[in-house]
Design a protein around this nucleic acid. Structure first.
Lengths: 207, 207
DNA sequence: TCACACTTGGGTATTTTCACCTAGGGATTA
DNA sequence: TAATCCCTAGGTGAAAATACCCAAGTGTGA
């Protein structure tokens, strides 16, 4: 699924930049380096997009924290991992609160940073998938027949096949058949999943 | 609006507890002190509610971080302000990510803590719809042990007893027992109901 | 009229859950 | 020390769900 990860690294220290560029190259990660937040923003304004942004906190001009603020305010979805040389708890708290994904102290293990980046990207893909997923599910609900939907609703309400049958005046066996159909169509593999899907779909009107 | 602020303070250090109690008394804030997270949870289970929870991070038994996890998992809305003696950035990051409102290093200015508490309470004033019902459900969640909660979460995710057992490295039979306990305690009569209750209380998650 | 989908219902066998029960080990508390 | 709670795990038997198979009646649209 992951074609090629493309990240941005922002640090005013040339040595750090070089070191990280080399490390990420070895990890098969495409890296764009920037010596300042400003340079980075220019690239963003030029239309460049990254899967993850790794930035130092303390830099001349715009700090990493400012950058997070700016990016989140601009609605940019890419996760930001901040790196700091000074173990500043207050700043870490502030950073996470404004939406930074992680906050790592120098000196850090490169593997730790890598793990955080992977984690950030993974978590970040969730909402997009959710929106698309929701539409997919909604369309599947539409293909259900009236009877199937009836059965589904009662099943989601927690009734057993027997109870559903007596309520709909059909045999439990028929209910069983309908139920299997519903599960297959919706793509749920168990009742718990079906309940979640039903709640998700019915809990949110189409946008 | 603010009748009387009532907060909980949790710290295993008697001196800190006394000091804060005195300080908050002077600020006209009602304070309940607890020497451990467990004592605090007992009070919560007994139905006590607080506008804000101030807790030390490092304590014997349950840590402040565990506490936040537990409270947020149970859907309790009260904001938590954590205090730590060791400037631990990683822990601060983890704490904020799981939903702590603030993370303050010792030694701290009492006014700083007070400001954070006021801020937390103010931010926390969001409208709750079926507050009474949610409270009832939350209190039930609080009575679950850690293991029971684990089992519940996996069950809600749709795993079978066998799958849960293999994941938790316990026998399916034990899972079955835990599950029965959970169902009884929560007051759910089938999985569908459990899933719906869990989603309501925790306002979550993707499958 | 024919094909297709939906509904209905049955059979059979396996798996899973549910509702009871007992019982030991470990940790905590009175 | 005794009581209590939790986690562990086993047993039994009933109920339910699941995964397959099958067929017949009813529409709808090509």
């Amino acid at each position: 699924m992951s074609a090629l990860i493309h990240i941005a690294v922002i640090d005013d220290d040339e040595a750090v930049l070089d070191s990280l560029r080399l490390y990420f190259a070895r990890q098969n990660i495409e890296t764009s380096c920037f010596a300042s937040a400003k340079e980075f923003l220019t690239a963003i304004e030029g239309g460049e997009r990254f899967d993850c942004i790794v930035s130092d906190v303390r830099m001349p001009g715009m700090t990493g924290l400012d950058l997070v603020h700016r990016l989140k305010g601009g609605g940019l979805a890419a996760p930001v991992v901040l790196i700091t040389g000074h173990g500043d708890v207050d700043m870490a708290v502030a950073a996470i609160k404004v939406g930074a994904f992680d906050f790592i102290e120098k000196p850090f293990d490169e593997a730790r940073l890598l793990a955080s980046i992977h984690n950030a990207i993974e978590k970040n893909q969730q909402p997009e998938i959710d929106a698309a997923e929701l539409e997919r599910l909604r369309s599947r609900f539409m293909t259900l027949s009236a009877r199937q939907r009836q059965v589904m609703e009662l099943a989601v309400a927690g009734l057993s096949n027997k109870e559903i049958g007596s309520q709909l005046k059909i045999s439990p066996k028929t209910v069983e058949n309908h139920r299997a159909w519903v599960m297959e169509r919706i793509g749920a593999r168990n009742i718990a999943e079906l309940v979640r899907i039903a709640m998700k779909v019915q809990g949110m009107p189409p946008s």
